[in-house]
Design a protein around this nucleic acid. Structure first.
Lengths: 318, 318
DNA sequence: CGAGTAGAGGCCACATCCTGGCCACTACCG
DNA sequence: CGGTAGTGGCCAGGATGTGGCCTCTACTCG
């Protein structure tokens, strides 16, 4: 068995692989990943350049390296990390059931067969059970159709609930096992997120559109905001005063805005998708609540008071 | 300008393309072509093999080297569904960041390379953004070590928090982005779930063990139950009946267990850190709530009813 | 079945190269 | 203008690669 192995060559391959997988790599990060000094990173980059790979460099803050596109790369192979990631990802996907889950399982098997024995062995070692909230399955075909429209920047027409919608599809997003399309709703003239499992795309797609900037610039943030509440997308916004230190409240307040009014008192601006939901959520703080507004929130509290009273078997009057 | 350039690396790359270009290469020819000694050819071949390239060797007269399938041919017989599933799974994994995320991204690239053009296009179409709760990253290496122990049925010793633990590892489970090991804790003589991101396995592993049956027989169920239970997370567990379809409830139920009792009725097992919090959380469902138990939960509803009534400015009596 | 061919790989001595560290410099961002 | 981040020269020490040599082994062909 040969002991000596040019760590250098392997590293160069690895570096290519890394550079390929992500857009920008700060030198320090590369150094960290490859477990070499930054100095050597520079040297390696040089070497790759000398071998003909177009590696662009970005200087200054937020700098880094970037592999130019359209390069003919040497046949890269799976390294151990990739094999593990692949297995894990596919097993988790397979666990999600449905058409995609099935396909993921089969895909894993397919990849497995073309792997060198060593990696195959490694793959077989990793066995993961995935526990997930039961989520509606997504039809792979729909996913592809929607993605295609996103890519082609073509207006999408689709059945959704009762009616037909028209929207400019911008991003496909997954969140906790559910799939959404972030799109500009042409009927409502506003950003919307649609559940992909409830969409039935119609063909043909409409004309091309010019993409708009997603509010905030970051899709992930946008979607999170949509769901967690911040002033971006909530339909209901309310203001309350809680008899509890601001710090204690802020801890569990999510994206709400908390402002201290005194040592044991704070003001809070919350967002939610419905008034009762907001009221209920505020009930978790175990503090006296004073509604500043709007009246709908007060009504919601009244409503919940009655409901909870019924649940508890007590009587509520006016 | 850097003068030194690892001739070795360049040569390996060159050799790779030579091997790709022609079917068989006698060692002597390679030596000649690359201007190195036959001895070094042999070494280089070894190196490439060590990097994972399947290089076959033909001995005897007319012998030589040949680059095996998997690199030269596109023998990955994915069907469309598999390709989509693969892409989706890897993109989602890639979004999770960290070492595994990177590796997933690279793996996607690698697979992509050996795909027929048509599938490659299909792959390129699917672009997914994954939004996840910020979860601690798992070290792929640890994951493999733990999985290996599971597979080999070897007692695992690992640092966990302050001390060292010994356990019989049974299953690796992922749940909402977090990774757990379900194991029989040899010190506590009981089943435990350990957060894999907090584990540091020690080598060597201990003796082999005979697997026990996971309580309930189903790991997924066991883990889910664990999280309802007191020892791992929630201190309060309650049971209620909601006047709402199970499907609609499950959608927002987080990790609670929902069971349909009829078209518009379901039973729900919930966990929370306090009774009022549980009651409040249940209030978000906009459905009538009937407490099955325990009494503390009923009391919490009463308490909240009063509080909400005060907030809303209505009166509650018994 | 035996001879010849071609790869496998251990060992050695020598030269090369690679590496990390240090540092002064420069490009870019805000 | 200051901070960040890439650039590249230089150095010393040590890891690595290299050719040569030799013995084995596997396979083919006569």
């Amino acid at each position: 068995m040969i002991v000596g192995m040019p760590k250098t060559s392997a590293r160069l391959l690895a570096m290519l692989s890394l550079l390929q997988a992500r857009r920008d790599w700060p030198g320090a990060l590369l150094a960290d990943r490859l477990e070499i000094s930054p100095r050597t990173v520079r040297r390696d980059v040089d070497r790759l350049r000398e071998l003909g790979y177009p590696i662009a460099t970005i200087k200054g803050p937020d700098g880094g390296y970037r592999l130019g596109a359209g390069t003919e790369l040497p046949p890269l192979l799976f390294d151990d990390e990739q094999a593990v990631a692949l297995t894990v990802a596919l097993q988790v996907a397979a666990g999600s059931g449905g058409g995609i889950g099935d396909a993921a399982g089969r895909a894993l098997n397919t990849v497995r067969q073309v792997m060198p024995t060593r990696l195959r062995h490694r793959i077989d070692t990793v066995r993961v059970t995935s526990v997930a909230r039961p989520a509606p399955e997504v039809d792979g075909a729909v996913l592809v159709e929607v993605s295609t429209a996103v890519r082609r920047q073509e207006v999408l027409r689709f059945d959704y609930g009762e009616g037909v919608r028209r929207a400019e599809p911008h991003h496909v997003v997954t969140r906790y096992g559910r799939w959404y399309l972030v799109a500009w709703d042409l009927d409502k003239d506003d950003w919307r997120t649609f559940r992909i499992d409830r969409m039935t795309p119609r063909t043909p797609t409409g004309p091309r559109f010019t993409p708009r900037a997603v509010p905030g610039g970051d899709v992930a943030a946008f979607v999170t905001a949509r769901f967690q509440g911040s002033d971006t997308g909530w339909q209901c916004r309310g203001e309350v005063i809680l008899d509890k230190p601001a710090a204690r409240v802020a801890e569990f307040a999510g994206d709400a805005i908390v402002e201290a009014l005194g040592p044991d008192r704070c003001r809070m601006l919350v967002g939610s998708w419905s008034w009762p939901a907001m009221a209920a959520t505020l009930g978790r703080f175990e503090a006296e609540i004073e509604v500043v507004g709007p009246p709908e929130l007060r009504d919601a509290f009244a409503q919940l008071a009655h409901r909870f009273a019924r649940t508890a078997g007590v009587i509520v009057g006016r």
